[in-house]
Simulated scan of single mutants.
Amino acid sequence: MSDIVDTVLDDLVKLLKKDQIKLPSLPEVAMQVKEIAENKTSTVFQLNEAISGDPALSARLIQIVNSPLFRAAQDVKDLPMAISRLGITYSSNLAIGLAMEQMFKANNKMVEMRMRELWLLITQVSSWASVLAIHTKSIPPDEAMLAGLVHRIGALPVLTYAEMKSELIDHNGVLGRVIDRIHGPLGTAILERWDFTENLTQVPKLYRKIDRKIEKPDYAGIITLANLVNARHKNMGWGNVDWQTVPMFKTFGLPDDKEDILWEELADKVNEQSSWRM
C-alpha cells in the first residue's frame, strides 16, 4: 500500500505545483471579518455590516450567544447585541470559523460524506480546545477554538483531488494515509496564504507531534491535547496514545490520566457548545 500512497502523493504534489488543484480560498465573509478584526479602529457597526450580509451566519451567532455556553442573563435578539456581548475579537474569530463550514462540501457523495465527517471531528476538537483554554487560562478561548477549526484544513485539497480521481475514493485506506501524510504542511501553506498569524499557521504541521517538549503553552499544543482528550474512549489512532508519554499535559497543568474525573467535568462544558456544531 505504501507504493500506492507514494504514487498518489507524487501526483497530488505535481498537480498542486501546476496550480491544477488550487489551495482553498477563505470565504468572502470570513475575509471581510478578518480585515475588520485586524483593524484596531473597527467598530461593532462595521462588523455587524459584514456579518449581516450572511443571514445564516448571523442567525448562528445569535444562537450561540443564547446557548448555555455563555449563560446570558437575557436573550440576545439581534446581531449587534450579540457582537457587543461577545466583543469584536471573539465575534470575529467565531464568525470566521463558522463561515469555513461552507468549504466542506463536494459534488461526489462519498467525498461529501468524508468532508462532513471531517467537519464534525474538527468542531469536536475545536470545542475541546476552547474548553481546555478556559480551564487552563493558557490561551484565549476564541483563538483556541479557531486553531481547532483550521488544524486539518490541509485535508481539503486532498479531498478535492479525490473528486478528480474517482478510483481513489474506493481506496478509503489509501486516501486516509495520503491525508495523514500531507495535510500538515498543506494546512500551513493554506493559512500562510490566508495571512493568518504565525501562532495559527504553525498548528497544522505541529499538532501531531505528541512528544514535543515546550516551555510554555502554545496553540499547536492545545490542539494536540484536544485531539487526545476527544479520542480518549477510542481504541484506535489518537485513542491508543499513552498519555504519560506526552509532556504537554504537564506544560498545560493537566492530568495525564484518561480516567481522571476532570475529563468528564470538562466534557459537560464541551457539550454546552453543541449549539454551533451543526
Score class of each variant (00 low, 15 high):
residue 137 K to F: 03
residue 138 S to T: 04
residue 138 S to M: 01
residue 140 P to R: 07
residue 142 D to L: 03
residue 142 D to T: 08
residue 145 M to F: 15
residue 147 A to G: 05
residue 149 L to W: 02
residue 150 V to M: 04
residue 150 V to S: 02
residue 151 H to D: 03
residue 152 R to K: 14
residue 152 R to I: 03
residue 153 I to R: 00
residue 154 G to Q: 01
residue 155 A to C: 11
residue 155 A to Y: 00
residue 155 A to M: 14
residue 156 L to Q: 02
residue 156 L to I: 13
residue 156 L to R: 04
residue 157 P to R: 05
residue 157 P to V: 09
residue 157 P to F: 09
residue 158 V to G: 04
residue 159 L to K: 01
residue 159 L to Y: 14
residue 162 A to P: 01
residue 163 E to T: 09
residue 165 K to T: 08
residue 166 S to C: 04
residue 166 S to W: 05
residue 168 L to Q: 07
residue 168 L to D: 03
residue 169 I to K: 11
residue 171 H to I: 11
residue 171 H to M: 15
residue 172 N to R: 15
residue 173 G to A: 14
residue 175 L to K: 13
residue 176 G to M: 11
residue 177 R to Y: 12
residue 180 D to W: 13
residue 181 R to Q: 13
residue 181 R to D: 12
residue 182 I to M: 13
residue 183 H to M: 13
residue 183 H to Q: 15
residue 184 G to D: 06
residue 186 L to P: 01
residue 186 L to M: 15
residue 187 G to H: 01
residue 188 T to S: 13
residue 188 T to C: 01
residue 190 I to Y: 01
residue 190 I to F: 03
residue 191 L to R: 00
residue 191 L to F: 00
residue 193 R to C: 02
residue 193 R to V: 02
residue 194 W to C: 01
residue 196 F to M: 15
residue 197 T to P: 00
residue 197 T to R: 06
residue 198 E to Q: 06
residue 199 N to M: 05
residue 199 N to T: 06
residue 201 T to Y: 00
residue 202 Q to K: 00
residue 203 V to P: 00
residue 205 K to D: 03
residue 206 L to G: 03
residue 207 Y to R: 05
residue 209 K to F: 04
residue 210 I to C: 04
residue 210 I to G: 04
residue 211 D to L: 11
residue 214 I to S: 06
residue 217 P to N: 09
residue 219 Y to S: 15
residue 219 Y to P: 04
residue 219 Y to R: 09
residue 219 Y to D: 09
residue 221 G to N: 09
residue 223 I to Q: 01
residue 224 T to Y: 01
residue 225 L to I: 12
residue 225 L to Y: 02
residue 226 A to Q: 05
residue 226 A to P: 06
residue 228 L to Q: 02
residue 228 L to M: 05
residue 228 L to S: 05
residue 229 V to Y: 00
residue 229 V to F: 02
residue 230 N to W: 02
residue 230 N to A: 12
residue 231 A to I: 01
residue 232 R to F: 05
residue 234 K to A: 12
residue 234 K to Q: 12
residue 236 M to E: 14
residue 237 G to T: 05
residue 237 G to S: 07
residue 238 W to E: 13
residue 239 G to N: 07
residue 240 N to M: 14
residue 240 N to P: 00
residue 240 N to L: 15
residue 241 V to A: 06
residue 241 V to T: 10
residue 241 V to E: 05
residue 242 D to N: 14
residue 242 D to W: 03
residue 242 D to K: 10
residue 243 W to M: 11
residue 244 Q to R: 15
residue 244 Q to N: 11
residue 245 T to Y: 03
residue 245 T to S: 13
residue 247 P to T: 06
residue 248 M to K: 10
residue 248 M to G: 04
residue 249 F to T: 07
residue 249 F to P: 12
residue 250 K to E: 12
residue 250 K to V: 09
residue 251 T to N: 07
residue 251 T to F: 03
residue 251 T to E: 03
residue 252 F to G: 10
residue 254 L to Q: 08
residue 254 L to S: 07
residue 255 P to R: 10
residue 256 D to L: 07
residue 256 D to V: 05
residue 256 D to G: 04
residue 257 D to A: 10
residue 257 D to H: 04
residue 257 D to R: 11
residue 261 I to G: 10
residue 261 I to Q: 13
residue 262 L to R: 12
residue 262 L to D: 06
residue 263 W to N: 10
residue 263 W to Q: 11
residue 264 E to V: 09
residue 265 E to K: 15
residue 266 L to K: 08
residue 268 D to H: 12
